[in-house]
């Protein structure tokens, strides 16, 4: 410390440095900003451009300006509406399951019981399983009508086993995705529950509030912010569920499990219709942006405090 008080270090102009440096140092953010800007603007502009072009990789002779043809084709395609419906059903179902169960489980895992830490770790584990593994383990080891655990259990009870992916394909995908995301909701909400002021609960108990009243009037309001964050982050990921569908149903049977992400993938990389896929891409971007708007607003408010 004494060196800094007695004078400038050798070779440095103490007067000039502080004036010049802050500018240079605040420019260190630029590399990140520039690569992210390129990562955002270039593909976005290309998607927008392709979406108004006739462009099929299989047939280079067809090209030119398409105007809104790709969009018109998209909205008159029943597959598109089916995929939009599937996307929304998947989204809402998984959100309801993970947020409701996640809240209850967060409260449960906040109670002291023997081995609680181990139980928490076990419950959170599914979130770290890669989507392709999660999907195939569920499809084959658990839900296979003959060899799967569920089939064997059904057989033991004399109930005819269910061919889940043939008869309830979308429900099966919902089950898998919920299993992956319930631990996420639990993890976030548990963190939030732990920051709850226990004095407040104590006071409520003194005033004669039962467990249920405590949950609805103290815990739930306290969690509202965390719940909204969970909903928004899950929404962003759930709008583009892909791997789980890719390895289990490939969008089928028919278009029963084709969501927007899978539709765009199949338009682009199976049918090579760049224009049509890009129009779909613009719809996906629009959907995500509506959610993003609210998420950024919530986080921004947090940044103030």
């Amino acid at each position: 410390m004494s060196a800094s008080l007695t004078g400038p270090a050798p070779g440095h102009d103490a007067k000039a440095a502080p004036a010049a440096r802050p500018v240079a140092r605040s420019l260190l953010v630029m590399p990140s900003v520039l690569v992210l800007l390129a990562w955002m603007i270039v593909p976005l502009a290309m998607t927008l451009w392709f979406s108004v072009r006739q462009y099929n990789l299989l047939d280079p002779s067809i090209h030119g300006f398409a105007g809104i043809d790709n969009y018109t084709y998209l909205v008159t395609d029943p597959d598109f509406w089916a995929s939009l419906e599937n996307t929304l059903i998947l989204l809402v179902a998984v959100l309801v399951i993970t947020v409701c169960l996640g809240t209850l489980l967060a409260v449960l895992f906040n109670q002291p019981f023997p081995g609680r830490n181990v139980a928490r770790v076990l419950a959170i584990s599914p979130f770290f399983v890669m989507p392709t593994v999660a999907a195939l383990i569920w499809k084959n080891l658990l839900m296979h009508p003959i060899y799967g655990v569920l089939g064997v259990v059904a057989h033991a009870f004399g109930v005819p086993p269910v061919d889940w992916f043939a008869h309830y394909p979308l429900f099966s995908v919902i089950a898998i995705v919920s299993w992956e995301w319930l631990p996420f909701a639990l993890l976030i909400l548990l963190t939030a529950v732990q920051s709850l002021d226990t004095d407040q609960l104590e006071a409520a108990r003194m005033d004669g509030a039962g467990s249920i009243a405590q949950f609805f009037f103290i815990t739930l309001p306290h969690l509202s912010r965390a719940i909204s964050v969970v909903i928004m982050i899950e929404t962003i990921f759930l709008l583009s569920v892909f791997a789980e569908i890719f390895v289990t149903t490939a969008g089928g049977p028919g278009n029963a499990t084709t969501n927007l992400a899978f539709l765009i993938y199949s338009r682009a990389l199976l049918q090579f219709d760049v224009g049509g896929a890009s129009a779909g891409g613009m719809v996906a971007i629009l959907l995500a942006n509506i959610v993003a708007f609210f998420l950024v607003r919530t986080v921004a408010r947090r940044l103030e405090t």
Partner: peptide, 16 residues
């Protein structure tokens, strides 16, 4: 920066 994370990958699959 946070908002760039919101761009759905499937929206830019074709150009990438």
């Amino acid at each position: 920066m946070l908002s760039t994370k919101m761009l759905p990958p499937v929206g830019v699959l074709v150009p990438i």
